[in-house]
């Protein structure tokens, strides 16, 4: 590997005419400055200008942003909403859990008023959801599972075994063969393990 250049916060990397600022940089007076301590990476996007960014070994804390797909664990349910702890943003694990809420009307895309949270999630389920809002002063992150690919991915039955999805609204326990209602995510077959 060719030795990459080290940079520290406040160091001038180049001017705005040469590159587009990427992650870990900021603009000031027509020049691009580094804002993190790490290695300078220049990537050619194929467009006019390359993107210049600063990378670190340990990624800095990512915050869930609007539109990001997050993996969360259900902590409590309520006839109106379900409270979750956000564990992963995309594929990066978070060091700290963030709190989120999935409202009853955001569980499904169709027939929103006929949703029962007890039949969609249970505490302890791992759910794939999308962030719709950062929330205001009172509330936490608002999430939605109103898409085919979003919903419960891993759930345990009342007997304690990991359940297998049967349809978009049911899962079956392999031990007791009892069916339970969940809002199931349609995961691509190649990601499913036997």
């Amino acid at each position: 590997m060719s030795p990459m250049k080290l940079c520290v916060p406040g160091e001038r990397l180049c001017s705005t005419e040469d590159c587009i600022p990427g992650n870990g940089t900021y603009l000031r007076h027509g020049s691009i400055f580094a804002s993190l301590a790490g290695y300078v990476l220049r990537k050619n996007e194929g467009e006019e200008l390359p993107v210049i960014s600063v990378v670190r070994e340990t990624e800095a804390q990512l915050l869930p942003d609007v539109g990001a797909i997050v993996t969360c664990k259900v902590t409590s349910i309520n006839p109106r909403f379900a409270k979750v702890h956000i564990l992963y943003v995309g594929s990066t694990p978070l060091k700290d859990r963030f709190r989120g809420t999935i409202r009853r009307e955001d569980v499904r895309a169709t027939e929103k008023d006929k949703v029962e949270t007890y039949k969609s999630f249970r505490p302890g389920d791992i759910v794939l959801a999308k962030v719709i809002s950062l929330g205001d002063v009172q509330s936490n992150y608002l999430l939605t599972t109103a898409e085919n690919e979003l919903g419960v991915v891993v759930a345990h039955s009342e007997a304690g075994a990991q359940m297998v999805p049967i349809s978009w609204c049911e899962m079956q326990c392999p031990r007791t063969h009892a069916k339970e209602f969940r809002k199931v995510a349609r995961v691509q077959p190649e990601y499913l393990q036997a």
């Binding site: 520290v8 670190r56 340990t58 800095a60």
Partner: peptide, 11 residues
């Protein structure tokens, strides 16, 4: 702060 990877304008 630099160690934590929090972006700053300068030292």
């Amino acid at each position: 702060l630099v160690d934590a990877g929090i972006p700053m304008r300068d030292y």
